[in-house]
Design a protein around this nucleic acid. Structure first.
Length: 426
DNA sequence: TCTGGGGTCCTAGGACCC
DNA sequence: TCTGGGGTCCTAGGACCC
């Protein structure tokens, strides 16, 4: 029988902030942004939660429920750093560690009883070690499957260790709300309630065939989850593998909706650059470029196109994203705009020699730009179109280098040059 | 209450091919 | 030419997670 730990950090972002500013301890703290900003709560301290504040809640709502809360923007790098410290501590405890997100992990400690003792004692030992090494509290769920351990760590919060004895999984799960099952959100919960299913025990009693007929493939998975079973069985080989990403995207929500074409296109250029940069960092090429547009009513559309050859160049991603935007934007104010790369490949595939040499030149320009960004920051180099709108001022003020084609040679016809053309060779 | 940003997976319809 | 079925790729949307 496997022994799986699920380790979940308590109010992770808030707890890290408290390390940097101990005066925050014991206060209502919300990480996510200013109280009046467009945005949602990323993390709330337990003090703030007493007032009904929880993650994913709009910041403006949070500030109404808890006006005295301290609102912080948050520091991604800090959280990544502390996540690494936690991970190091987990790996020192046992080698079979799978980070599920920035603040949670699964550990397979099946073979570690000799070293760490029985499950509950081992759990407390790990809990102590994490606290000592990082100053952070966590909760640990222990059982024979990842699913039950995850639900279990949630029941253990805050700052607790809980063990579900082998053979008692069904008894543990039965009284819990169906919403506790990972994957059951608002919609599925509503649908289940309509069928008279409120608790995991209700779900477990149902015929899997009924769930499959009612919810399709997902229904069958749900039937398994109600029994506390992991999708991949007791142990699936993907436990330790870090898989390649399937998509890379960036999006931006404006402080106020905007219908300014120049500003929208500048944002698309900026987002395309960020996507391209990450593609190159990961060594991927994208075949499908997608844009996302959300209007004032929160109505959201996505429009995608698959390219003839895969690319990792900002200019090609931007050209595609821009074309999709021009074809689909009707002039209405935009709340959010996004650019996504998917259909990721390891190589760019075949193309003509001419295209190849053009891309080779752009590629070296991109590599040079990446080096400059590493050295001087992300805003030092930008697509020409990125200089419009709100990015213009920032870039001009720093008198940054622009990523534009080099001056033309005289024999070239003037009209053939645009921001879309590759830079000349020196 | 007025809704971020980064992802994953699933469904469903249409095109196209055999 | 009155019309099947399966497979794959593409696109759009939606539920969900942290």
């Amino acid at each position: 029988m496997a022994t799986i730990f699920h380790v979940d950090m308590d109010a992770f972002f808030v707890s890290v902030e408290e390390i940097f500013d101990p005066s925050l301890k014991g206060k209502a703290v919300v990480v996510g942004g200013p109280a009046n900003a467009r945005g949602v709560v990323s993390a709330a301290s337990y003090e703030a939660r007493k007032f009904g504040v929880h993650s994913a809640m709009p910041l403006r709502t949070a500030s109404q429920k808890c006006p005295h809360a301290i609102f912080l923007n948050g520091n991604r790098e800090r959280y990544v750093e502390y996540s690494r410290r936690v991970e190091a501590e987990l790996r020192a405890f046992t080698p079979l560690v799978s980070m599920a997100s920035i603040d949670e992990a699964y550990l397979d400690v099946s073979g570690a009883t000799r070293l760490h003792g029985p499950p509950l004692a081992a759990g407390h030992k790990l809990h102590e070690r994490i606290k000592r090494a990082t100053g952070l509290n966590c909760s640990i769920g222990i059982s024979s499957s990842r699913l039950v351990s995850k639900i279990c760590s949630d029941q253990a919060k805050p700052n607790g260790v809980l063990w579900v004895l082998p053979g008692t999984e069904a008894r543990f799960l039965a009284p819990l709300d169906v919403r506790k099952v990972p994957g059951v959100g608002k919609r599925t919960e509503e649908a289940l309630h309509l069928c008279g299913i409120r608790r995991i025990g209700d779900l477990a009693r149902l015929d899997p065939a009924f769930l499959e007929q009612r919810f399709g493939k997902w229904g069958l998975a749900l039937a398994g989850k109600a029994q506390g079973l992991d999708a991949g069985g007791w142990f699936d080989s993907s436990f330790l593998e870090t898989e390649d990403p399937k998509s890379i995207s960036h999006e931006h929500t404006y402080d106020e909706d905007t219908a300014e074409r120049g500003r929208l296109i500048a944002t698309i250029a900026h987002l395309s650059e960020m996507v391209g940069r990450r593609l190159r960092d990961h060594g991927f090429f994208t075949r499908t470029v997608q844009i996302k547009l959300r209007d004032a009513d929160f109505h959201t559309i996505t429009r995608a196109r698959t390219l003839a050859h895969a690319s990792q160049l900002d200019t090609e991603i931007f050209a595609e994203a821009r074309a999709l935007f021009e074809k689909n934007w009707r002039g209405a104010p935009v709340r959010l705009i996004g650019v996504q790369a998917s259909n990721l490949e390891q190589t760019e595939g075949q193309s003509s020699l001419l295209e190849q040499s053009n891309r080779d030149r752009w590629r070296s320009a991109m590599a040079a730009a990446d080096r400059l960004r590493d050295k001087f920051g992300d805003d030092t180099v930008s697509l020409a179109a990125g200089l419009q709108g709100r990015f213009r001022r920032r870039v001009d003020e720093t008198s940054a280098q622009r990523l534009e084609p080099a001056p033309e040679r005289p024999q070239r016809p003037k009209s053939s040059q645009s921001t879309q053309s590759p830079p000349d060779r020196d």
